[in-house]
Amino acid sequence: MKKQPPPSPMIDDADLDLFRQSIAGAKQLKQDTVRFDKAPSKPKVNELATQKKQHQSEFYFSDEYIPDIDTSGTINYVKPGADRYLAKQLRRGDFAPELILDLHGLNKDMAKEELAALIHACKKQHYYCACVVHGIGEHVLKHKVPQYLVQHPNVLAMHQAPLEYGGKGAVLILIDLPQTNEFRR
């Protein structure tokens, strides 16, 4: 059943004349809606994100800097001023990685970008431990990944991963998270 519109109130002639005087000289607006022939593309947004990611990775990771760590044997690093016991805890597997990054098939530049993104994601999600699987292959990433990670200010410690997380083809890292007052007593 259709609803009947409510009866309109009676408009007297004086109100109608006042309305006509107030809109005198008004012109009808032309429709100004713009319709695109095709959807606007978004490569500029993706390009900016890629440039930002690349800039972050280049800022922290340099190929020229070679830290004083042995990458041919067991990888072991603790940031100066941090507890040396962290390396032993990583070696024993006391920390389980909350994020795992697999670098198989990536070149050095792509690996730098992914490492920067991993550390950023760990900080953002408040993850303390992560695993970077670099593989063994031709030993390029096996040597470069620890050298890159040592350069980042938020890497607290790293050690070759236990067998269950990748052994000689992976590294466990601890991220230095900012202290929050929520957990202090």
Rank of each mutant, 00 (worst) to 15 (best):
H120A: 14
H159K: 03
R184Y: 13
L48F: 07
S62P: 06
A14D: 13
V78A: 05
K2Y: 09
T71N: 02
T180C: 09
V78R: 03
A170I: 00
F19N: 15
G81S: 03
V171N: 05
Y60R: 01
R84I: 10
F36W: 00
R185C: 07
F19W: 14
D32G: 06
F61G: 05
P67I: 04
P43S: 10
V140K: 05
F36N: 05
L99S: 10
L86D: 04
G73F: 07
I11N: 06
D15V: 15
L174K: 00
E64R: 15
K52P: 12
L16P: 02
P162S: 00
K42W: 08
M158A: 01
K112G: 05
D102A: 00
N76H: 13
P162A: 00
E113D: 05
K2S: 15
V145H: 01
A121G: 11
A49T: 15
C129R: 07
T50C: 10
T74C: 09
N154S: 07
P146A: 01
I23H: 14
A170R: 01
K42E: 14
N181G: 12
H143C: 03
M1Q: 13
Q28K: 13
A14E: 09
E138A: 08
P80H: 10
R35K: 10
L118R: 06
E98G: 06
L29E: 13
C122D: 01
D32M: 05
F95W: 06
H159R: 00
L156D: 04
Q147V: 04
Q125V: 05
R20N: 13
H55A: 06
K144I: 14
P97L: 08
L156E: 12
K2D: 09
K30A: 08
G166A: 01
K168Y: 09
A24D: 11
H55Y: 15
R91W: 04
K52S: 10
I11H: 08
A96T: 04
A26Y: 06
